[in-house]
């Protein structure tokens, strides 16, 4: 294991985040806070409680998940797409590093960033709405698993994309709708019966449900199923990364 290489990539990526702290940290925190202000404080007071939880507090886990997903994907996809776009990937390819080490460096850094961001948003949310976390360890587990899984997914997108449009395509057209329809803002019980069934095909539902359970012990699906689903996504992403590296897809001619 080329430990120095993994650390070099990791440090490089963290340094890049710190250089662009407004864009990578401050901006998502502010935009998520706006949701808390609007839905928590302003409109939330007129919406009745869901499963006995104040609406403002109910949406907190979902909104953290929303940021975690989008940030993990965008951090990781951009971090590997940019060297490809700039041509600096030559150095990664000519270095004595395995593709796993490259992935570990980039995905590790992207996951770190999005997890830290998730925690900042969590702390910020506490300023606007009161809530307690029933199972902090489970909360941390879901946070880490989701951060890592979607950073891996972002990494795959970054390798697949050969232009800026493709880089944005999946996050905007697939991930964003799935996240909004994944129960961040409502409980699945509130949907008509038909849509309750359809929504079970939305993978994000399982993430939000499990994460919300760790806060309030209220879930749309059982926590075991949530954990199983996120582990399944993790395995799918790992397989994709393994396949990409095996074949050199979109990296080597």
């Amino acid at each position: 294991m080329n430990y120095y290489a993994v650390m070099a990539i990791y440090r490089f990526e963290i340094a890049r985040t710190l250089r662009t702290i407004f864009q990578s940290v401050v901006s998502p925190v502010i935009s998520t806070s706006l949701y808390f202000v609007v839905f928590g404080a302003a409109i939330g007071s007129r919406i009745s409680d869901i499963d006995g939880i104040v609406y403002g507090a109910f949406i907190v886990p979902g909104l953290i998940m929303l940021s975690l997903l989008t940030q993990s994907i965008s951090n990781a996809s951009f971090s590997i797409f940019f060297p490809k776009f700039m041509g600096t990937i030559y150095e990664l390819l000519s270095a004595p590093v395995s593709f796993y080490e490259i992935a570990l460096g980039y995905v590790g850094a992207a996951a770190t960033k999005s997890i830290v961001l998730g925690l900042i948003i969590l702390a910020t949310a506490r300023l606007f709405v009161p809530f307690e976390i029933a199972h902090p360890y489970w909360m941390a587990l879901f946070l880490v698993l989701t951060g890592v899984t979607f950073s891996l997914f972002g990494f795959v997108i970054g390798i697949w994309a050969d232009n800026f449009e493709k880089l944005q395509l999946i996050p905007l057209l697939v991930v964003m709708p799935l996240t909004f329809l994944g129960g961040s803002f409502y409980s699945v019980d509130m949907l008509p019966p038909f849509w309750q069934k359809v929504t079970l095909f939305n993978p994000v539902l399982y993430l939000v449900s499990g994460f919300r359970w760790s806060f309030y012990e209220v879930a749309d699906v059982s926590v075991g199923l949530s954990l199983a689903m996120i582990s399944l996504f993790l395995c799918i992403c790992l397989t994709l990364v393994w396949w990409i590296f095996k074949t050199g897809y979109q990296i080597k001619n």
């Binding site: 080329n2 120095y4 290489a5 070099a8 440090r11 150095e91 270095a95 004595p96 590093v97």
Partner: peptide, 10 residues
């Protein structure tokens, strides 16, 4: 510094 690390050197 990045290049040196990437090539596995302390």
């Amino acid at each position: 510094r990045f290049s040196r690390g990437l090539f596995g050197k302390k």
